[in-house]
């Protein structure tokens, strides 16, 4: 595999390889010198057409810790505002000799287009496209869960909230089911996507019924910028029925984790005391994100095959 476009592209072995690699790279965070020479002289472009704090900084830190050169591109203040197309932007990057392009785009499928159109030769990493996918977020979520709970086989994960607009939910369902976890999506009917019954997960409208038998509860941000219809009557009503507060957290099993991909709407889907509680691993998710993104960049860029799957069977080495 040359690109990371969807969490569904990873089979179990590949997903575990990324997670194991990240585990090794996580140790680096505790060292005084947090840098490896591995991708020296490689150029990684962060191509962000949509606002982002966490993901862009995380990819930038990951690339820099591997000694790659990083070029940050954000649509605001660039020629995109003058009407430049994705193709022309891509051709510009290609001419500059980018080895990898990390792309965040408001349109679902933009990274796929970039990877398969023949405009560029470099690796493409999807850093979130529309309401489609966000594979590195799913990887870091799985990584965080494994650090606390061990192997995910048979673990129950509830993903709660605005599933309809959430690329995080979609990628997590794909990856977590690959890793053997049982995922339940909890949301009002209006915020579940059409065709969700074909996803590899269960669905529920009742958060209180799901919580007592859950190992991980992942709260999703209510995406106001994508709320172009009346999906629920009022913010207060949503918060009452689907928000995680101290009382609901008490219904969780002792060992259960509370996660949120950020940015949080405190008081909306998650109350401040829950977000800051000891159950919450939200800040740790950010730390782990850097390790996961280092692992992805290493596996895509470091070897001759630049391929996740080439690492697996020894016999294939003959081709290199």
């Amino acid at each position: 595999m040359k690109h990371l476009l969807s969490a569904g592209d990873l089979d179990r072995d590949e997903a575990l390889l990324v997670l194991e690699t990240a585990e090794k790279l996580r140790e680096l965070a505790d060292r005084p010198i947090k840098k490896l020479p591995t991708l020296r002289g490689r150029t990684i472009v962060n191509l962000f057409f949509e606002d982002s704090t966490r993901t862009r900084i995380s990819f930038e830190a990951a690339a820099k810790r591997l000694s790659a050169d990083v070029i940050n591109f954000s649509a605001k203040g660039s020629s995109v505002e003058k009407g430049e197309s994705l193709k022309d932007t891509a051709l510009t990057l290609e001419a500059m000799g980018a080895d990898a392009v990390v792309v965040r785009h408001q349109s679902s499928g933009a990274p796929h287009r970039l990877a398969h159109s023949g405009w560029i030769q470099s690796c493409v990493v999807n850093a979130g496209d529309g309401s489609h996918e966000h594979p590195t977020q799913a990887l870091l979520d799985a990584f965080t869960m494994r650090r606390h709970l061990g192997a995910l086989d048979g673990r129950r994960v509830a993903i709660v909230g605005d599933v309809l607009h959430s690329r995080v939910a979609r990628s997590n369902v794909l990856l977590l089911s690959t890793l053997g976890a049982e995922v339940t999506l909890v949301a009002p009917p209006t915020l579940l996507p059409v065709g969700v019954e074909r996803w590899t997960c269960a669905t529920s409208y009742d958060l209180d019924a799901v919580l007592p038998k859950t190992d991980v509860v992942m709260m999703l941000r209510v995406q106001r910028e994508r709320m172009n219809a009346a999906f629920f009557p009022s913010a207060r009503e949503y918060s009452r029925r689907y928000g995680l507060d101290a009382a609901r957290m008490a219904a969780l099993p002792e060992h259960a984790l509370v996660m949120h991909p950020g940015p949080m709407n405190r008081g909306m889907e998650i109350s401040a005391d829950v977000a800051d509680s000891t159950r919450s691993v939200i800040v740790e998710q950010v730390t782990n994100g850097v390790a996961i993104r280092m692992a992805v960049l290493y596996l895509l860029l470091a070897g001759a095959g630049s391929a996740v799957d080439d690492t697996v069977p020894e016999q294939r080495r003959g081709r290199a």
Binding site: T21, E27, L36, T38, G303, A307, V308, D310, T311, A320
Partner: peptide
């Protein structure tokens, strides 16, 4: 001490699995 990330032949071969430090 895992030295994989410091090897000079990383680009000549398929990606190596990292060891533990």
């Amino acid at each position: 001490l895992d030295v994989t990330m410091y090897r000079d032949d990383l680009r000549l071969r398929p990606t190596r699995v990292l060891g533990h430090t």
